[in-house]
Design a protein around this nucleic acid. Structure first.
Ligand SMILES: [Zn+2]
Ligand SMILES: [Zn+2]
Ligand SMILES: [Zn+2]
Ligand SMILES: [Zn+2]
Lengths: 132, 132
DNA sequence: CTGATTTTGAAAATCATTATCAATTAGCTA
DNA sequence: TAGCTAATTGATAATGATTTTCAAAATCAG
């Protein structure tokens, strides 16, 4: 069976203190910075488990890194600030319905959707360069 | 200035023959399989250029690989088979509207959204293991 | 407490992607 | 067409994230 170790608890806890999405490497650094001796591989494993169990959300950054965040249990999407990482959870029933409808309309099974919005939060707008 | 090489043309051409999104590695294998001597690094560069110029769409697979596809110019989303890569372009005005509305509702500027659906096409359903 | 089983973590192995850099080549120009 | 030069190529090394290994340490039911 699955055992309870201080390492898993440390990861769960550390993830909870983050305001936005973090990478495994980043969380590991953060933990090390707080004096923890946890191993990098263990952080990867713990995050994968948390995501698996639904305690954490994961997504791929535009750069291809896997990012994690402690999120509410229910299915939802994100509004993420590209500058400060501020993340707002979004419920979008209409998008859920649309995704389901679209998938089945084309004969696709077991659909999963990636729906996230990246932008600049009101606090960051003044601090970033104008649009390209 | 930007030069025209048979390599870039080969990549553009090969991308056009793909039915869905492909990775740089995959496209390179495909080209090699067709007798081309093109180098892997060149395929990576050509794909990055095509994506930059808007001739190709790129996205991160759930596994974290960068995938490319020759797509229509206009903004659109995708329905992608996790097994064979079959891709269907989707227009979703309701999603566009939702994204805009949601971003501005929370004070976010310059919103960009990632909206893709991954699943198994009707042809692939029988060939893949059952859902977890 | 004990022992079977799981978990850990340092280090090695993978894997995709990028950087190097000498050799090649496209696109002038005369 | 020959020569020039900066852009491009590609074999290979380097990077960087993630995974695997596997012996040692820890958990927990009995
Ligand atoms: Zn979330
Ligand atoms: Zn912000
Ligand atoms: Zn497309
Ligand atoms: Zn398919």
């Amino acid at each position: 069976m699955k055992r309870n170790t201080w390492q898993r608890e440390a990861v769960r806890s550390a993830l909870g203190t983050q305001m936005g999405f973090v990478s495994a490497q980043g969380l590991h650094s953060s933990l090390k910075g707080s004096g923890s001796q946890i191993g990098l591989a263990t952080v990867y494993r713990a995050l994968a488990d948390l995501a698996q169990e639904g305690e954490a959300d994961s997504l791929q950054s535009p750069e291809g890194e896997a990012l994690y965040r402690a999120c509410s249990m229910a299915h939802h999407h994100h509004l993420i600030c590209r500058s400060c990482g501020l993340t707002i959870e979004i419920e979008a029933d209409e998008v859920e319905a649309w995704a389901q409808k679209t998938a089945s309309l084309h004969g696709f099974s077991r659909p999963e959707h990636v729906v996230d919005i990246f932008g600049f939060c009101s606090a960051c707008v003044p601090t970033v360069p104008a649009a390209s």
